[in-house]
Each structure stands twice: as structure tokens, then as C-alpha cells.
Amino acid sequence: MELNEQKTSQCVILGITGRLDTTNYNVLEKKLLELIDDHNEKILVECSKMDYVSSSGLRILLMALKKITMVKGKFVLCGLQENIREIFEISGFTNIFEIYGTQEEALKVF
């Protein structure tokens, strides 16, 4: 998995490329905690290049959502692949995450 961070005036865009699983979820966890500690309270996770996610990965995303919601920030996902979207649906995460089809769409909400 590779993480790609891009800071804009509106928010931080965090791109995930490859597999997010039990072996590497801690990398993402660390990165997100860093961002939140640096008062980046508006985060957009770009998932178009993420082709696998397991429950460990979902756990990190849920943790980030909870933390950012507590400081009244915004945590948004975009560009989920079809298979990934199904996993989100099965887990019921589509009901609690703000998910947009494309990055452009997502940026409008910040």
C-alpha cells in the first residue's frame, strides 16, 4: 500500500493505492493520527486506487471518522471501486460515511 498526501487550501487529500489489510493498516493509522494531531480537521480520502480493504482497514477509517467528528471536522471518502463499495455496504459503513463518486464532487462539500 502506498499513501499519497496532498494539502490544499480546503483540506488534506489522502490517496490510498493498493491493498489496505491487516499487514499495513498501522501505516494508515499512524498517518491519520499525525494529520489529526496537526489540526488537519478536514480530510478527504481518495480511494480510486485502493483495490482491497479488510476489516482492519475499515477499523482505521472508522476510528478516524470518530475522532474527526468529535472535533467537528469533516472526514470524507471518494472514488470507491465497485468491489470496495460492496464491502462498505455489507459492513453497513455506507450509512455512516460520507462517500462521493469523484474527487471533484467531494471537494465541493468542504
Binding site: 476489516s55 475499515l58 470518530k66 455489507i90 459492513s91 453497513g92 455512516i96
Partner: peptide
Amino acid sequence: FDKPLEERKIGGLGIHF
């Protein structure tokens, strides 16, 4: 499932999958 964010726990999600 179907619980508000605050009550959502990750345990059991794997078995659910």
C-alpha cells in the same frame, strides 16, 4: 449494524463478512 457511529464497534465485522 444500523447503530449510530458512536456505538459502532469493529469486532465481529470479519465474521460478518
